[in-house]
Simulated assay, not measured.
Amino acid sequence: MTENNTKKEVQPKRPQCAFFIYKQEVYQQVKDANPGKKMTDITKIISQQYKQLTKDKIDQYEQKYKDNKVVYEKEKKTYEDKHGKIKNERKKKKDDTKATKKPQNKKQKKQESDEDQSSEDDD
């Protein structure tokens, strides 16, 4: 096996924001307290809880985010020194979606197919 066949190191993932850190900690509790609720409803409940937290508690989650960001920046620098600059995939995806044609909804497709059939009947 040559060195070219070795797996490339996985690039570091960006840290989660303060809300997502909080959500990760309380999700299972909220889910258990609200059986049968959809994930979106559970997230709304967690969001309301987060907004009601004291400033000190929110600052704790913000600090966790900042700590995680420092670690991420170090890992990112190490990765970029070895493998080159990390490409921002989000921007690339946005550009790709602009180039693609927007799909039609079902009503428009049905109307077009009905028009095509009626024009065939005229022949």
Rank of each mutant, 00 (worst) to 15 (best):
Thr2Glu: 06
Thr2Ala: 08
Asn4Trp: 06
Asn4Val: 11
Asn5Gly: 11
Thr6Met: 12
Thr6Gln: 14
Lys7Ile: 12
Lys7Glu: 15
Lys7Asp: 12
Lys8Trp: 05
Lys8Phe: 03
Glu9Val: 14
Glu9Trp: 09
Val10Gly: 05
Arg14Tyr: 08
Arg14Phe: 06
Arg14Met: 02
Pro15Ile: 01
Pro15Asn: 03
Gln16His: 13
Cys17Tyr: 12
Ala18Ile: 00
Ala18Trp: 01
Phe19Asp: 01
Phe19Trp: 04
Phe20Tyr: 11
Ile21Gly: 00
Ile21Asp: 00
Ile21Ala: 01
Tyr22Val: 00
Tyr22Gly: 05
Gln24Lys: 12
Glu25Arg: 09
Glu25Leu: 07
Glu25Ser: 08
Val26His: 11
Gln28Pro: 00
Val30Leu: 10
Lys31Gln: 14
Lys31Arg: 15
Lys31Gly: 01
Lys31Pro: 02
Ala33Asp: 15
Ala33Ile: 00
Gly36Leu: 03
Gly36Phe: 02
Lys37Pro: 03
Lys37Ala: 11
Lys37Gln: 15
Lys38Phe: 05
Lys38Arg: 14
Lys38Glu: 09
Asp41Ala: 13
Asp41Trp: 04
Ile42Gln: 05
Ile42Ala: 07
Thr43Tyr: 01
Thr43Arg: 04
Ile45Asp: 03
Ile46Gln: 01
Ile46His: 03
Ile46Cys: 04
Ile46Phe: 04
Ser47Leu: 07
Lys51Tyr: 04
Thr54Ala: 13
Lys55Asn: 10
Asp56Trp: 02
Lys57Phe: 02
Ile58Ser: 13
Asp59Tyr: 01
Gln60His: 04
Tyr61Ile: 06
Glu62His: 08
Gln63Arg: 10
Lys64Asp: 04
Tyr65Lys: 05
Tyr65Leu: 00
Tyr65Glu: 02
Tyr65Ala: 00
Lys66Phe: 14
Asn68Met: 08
Val70Cys: 06
Val70Met: 05
Val71Trp: 00
Tyr72Gly: 06
Glu73Gly: 03
Lys74Gly: 07
Lys74Thr: 11
Lys76Leu: 10
Lys77Tyr: 08
Thr78Gly: 02
Thr78Ser: 13
Thr78Asn: 09
Thr78Asp: 12
Tyr79Met: 02
Tyr79Ala: 01
Asp81Gln: 14
Asp81Asn: 15
Asp81Thr: 10
Lys82Asn: 03
Gly84Val: 07
Gly84Thr: 06
Ile86Tyr: 07
Lys87Thr: 06
Lys87Ser: 08
Glu89Arg: 10
Lys91Ala: 15
Lys91Trp: 03
Lys91Ile: 09
Lys92Tyr: 11
Lys94Trp: 03
Asp95Phe: 05
Asp95Ala: 13
Thr97Gly: 00
Thr97Ser: 11
Lys98Ile: 02
Ala99Thr: 14
Ala99Tyr: 06
Pro103Leu: 05
Gln104Lys: 15
Gln104Glu: 08
Lys106Pro: 01
Lys106Gly: 03
Lys107Glu: 11
Lys107Asp: 09
Gln108Trp: 00
Lys109Thr: 09
Lys109Glu: 09
Lys110Asn: 07
Glu112Arg: 14
Glu112Ser: 12
Glu112His: 09
Ser113Ala: 14
Glu115Gln: 13
Glu115Ile: 08
Asp116Ala: 06
Asp116Glu: 13
Asp116Trp: 09
Ser118Trp: 07
Ser118Asn: 14
Ser118Gly: 05
Ser119Ile: 05
Glu120Gly: 03
Glu120Lys: 10
Glu120His: 06
Asp121Asn: 10
Asp121His: 04
Asp122Ile: 11
